[in-house]
Write a protein that binds this DNA or RNA. Structure first.
Lengths: 364, 364
DNA sequence: GCACTGGATGTTTACGCAAACATCAGCCAT
DNA sequence: ATGGCTGATGTTTGCGTAAACATCCAGTGC
């Protein structure tokens, strides 16, 4: 049985030419201990170390203790590259996402990371700098030589559609927060349901119709909210007013809001997200239109700050955490079953009434 | 030279016992092509494939083309586990972070991911559910068997201090956004400078003194902003008013704001972040105290929404992107040099004057 | 013509782990 | 006692890659 310290060094010395640079040998001796080193110290075979390391049965308590002691002594850590090579899996999920500047993406990512961690999976981030075909394509090809078993995409998927998405074999794909027809497995928020609830809420308060501050054209989520808004109005026999668009940012909400504020007939606005609602509130305020007395405003997302807006914002709560959780669950179940399992899972939303909505003026 | 399709299958057939299950063989044939497969198809040795794959010199243009064609035909992708095993590095950086619900952490993370990607490194996320010793410890031990070459911690580091941080050998550590004495390499925002600029700005406008809505006690960042606020006042010969605390959230800012709004002598408040400033604005508004006519408010962070607050918020801009970039740079340079390189790098801040600050009332 | 050079390519080997198989001791039933 | 069985452990092997070393061949200089 070898002594603890010199183990690795001795092994190295064998390889070194006699009288080789001692400094080098010093460095190499510091290399992580391998299973073989542990085995030698514990006086067992490396296979037994492997069994202990993986918690397999069939090892005497006595032996196990010895091996564990040797591991501790040498500071042994299994080499994940070797393990992955042998097992053919990395226990890692790649997440492709465009920007982290929207609350939704971040919250979803966080939930994915937490759920994955709970399942023993790590999460590797693949940022896409610019949401263009080329960049998405690039992310996927970087991914191809990356150590992942599965991929979750948090992104508008029309960029995905045209991209010839060639995944390495056995790598599963799930798309979050997007409507990708049924080419992929999708986990999404019930955009339509949330929108309908928002529009109904305003109509129920007595508003004639509801204006819409929509998100950017290229966003599917925005598209669906806009479609659902129009449908809900038509369903109620109301005339949808002209659409006003922003780009999700508060600043764009402000600019769009200046337009809306100028129209006296506008008494209720459904903003496609809370940030734009914030900008809208500011524009209305600057134009002397009171919220909710003159104009009702409703948002979408329920970001934590929404309750501190002036006035506190009525909005549609999205359960990003649930979306993330379901993404991980879906991707893992695909991995386990190996099947493609197309289809969409919808996560419900919830209307959160606060102080920014009220009956229209003159409806006393 | 073998034909394209059957290559892998043939190799498998050799291993299979004659007449073995064809279904199984089918599946195994779908396995990713290896270098050997490519080599066989291209009619070269696998070492030549390796050379092409890694862009090494010493391969004829003719041969290279053939190899590339074979790779394409087989859909070859280098196996990153095998590569990592051989090279002893993963080209991956682990990021340990507590919550992703603060703008700063997220923006820093995003910058880290982007910078890392540019250097050919991937980023693996290690969320810490609760900021306790145990959890941090847990993240580090999970990390120990994770495939990373370096670690960046975005977290209040007092949790790190006591934790016996045992990293695998050769794994480098850099801490972002924290003040960790000089135990570690730290990249941080110039909290003190930003705070001083904020306080000066208010004093220059004519305010007697500046109140402070501080962050939570357990945060070093908050601690330093509070210290710097007090120091800046004392330096100017003013008396620091009692400290009011929040927990970074808008809601806590609102609650604390109710206190401040009740005090007529309070004409200027420095909030430790923009979210709390938002809550403060709401509290002041509800108490009929106008901003900036009656009370000036200044924030910290410059979140994108700050320009859309009511009124648009004067604040201290933090360059999170730069912090992230420098973290990656620091960690890579440590890896390359191998040295410990303790010390702190400070990233400057910038005051962004908007509409929430003005001279105190009665100073016409 | 011959030894020599250097570039292109092939061959061998080890990285660390774990599956598959081999061994071996102890024990039970016949 | 003998064969078979079970549980603990050891041995062999191969995963895909790339470093190190070996080989081969076309020139070059003499």
């Amino acid at each position: 049985m070898n002594l603890p310290g010199p183990t690795a060094e001795a092994a190295d010395a064998t390889r070194d030419t006699a009288g080789g640079a001692p400094a080098l040998r010093r460095i190499r001796a510091r290399t992580t201990a391998s299973m073989a080193d542990v085995a030698r110290l514990a006086g067992v075979s490396s296979q037994t170390v492997s069994r202990v390391s993986n918690g397999y049965a069939g090892v005497t308590e006595e032996t196990r203790r010895q091996v564990l002691a040797a591991m501790k002594e040498l500071g042994y850590r299994p080499n994940s590259a070797a393990r992955a090579l042998k097992r053919g899996e990395f226990r890692t999920i790649g997440v492709i996402t465009f920007t982290l500047s929207t609350t939704g993406n971040v919250r979803t990512l966080e939930a994915i990371a937490n759920s994955a961690a709970r399942e023993g999976y790590a999460v590797t981030l693949l940022p896409v700098a610019v949401p263009t075909q080329d960049e998405v394509q690039g992310a996927f090809s970087r991914l191809e030589e990356l150590a992942v078993d599965a991929v979750i995409v948090i992104m508008e998927v029309h960029l995905l559609d045209a991209a010839t998405v060639t995944l390495p074999p056995h790598v599963q794909l799930v798309v979050a927060d997007s409507d990708a027809g049924n080419h992929y497995t999708v986990v999404d928020t019930d955009q339509a349901g949330g929108t309908r609830a928002a529009v109904r809420h305003l109509l129920d308060l007595g508003h004639r119709t509801v204006w819409h501050l929509g998100g950017p054209e290229e966003s599917f989520a925005a598209q669906r909210r806009t479609d659902a808004w129009r449908a809900a109005l038509l369903e109620a026999g109301r005339v949808p007013p002209p659409l006003v668009r922003g780009d999700w940012s508060a600043e764009s909400g402000y600019r769009a809001g200046l337009e809306l504020a100028a129209r006296d007939e506008c008494t209720a606005v459904f903003a496609a997200n809370d940030q734009m609602a914030l900008g809208l509130l500011r524009a209305l305020h600057e134009h002397g239109r009171r919220v909710p007395e003159d104009v009702s405003v409703i948002g979408f997302d329920d970001i934590p700050e929404a309750s501190s807006f002036l006035p506190p914002l009525t909005t549609v709560h999205q359960d990003f955490a649930e979306v993330g959780r379901l993404c991980v669950q879906a991707v893992l179940s695909k991995m386990r079953r190996g099947g493609p399992e197309r289809g969409t899972t919808l996560v419900p939303t919830r209307l959160v009434p606060r102080a920014s909505t009220a009956p229209p003026p003159g409806s006393a």
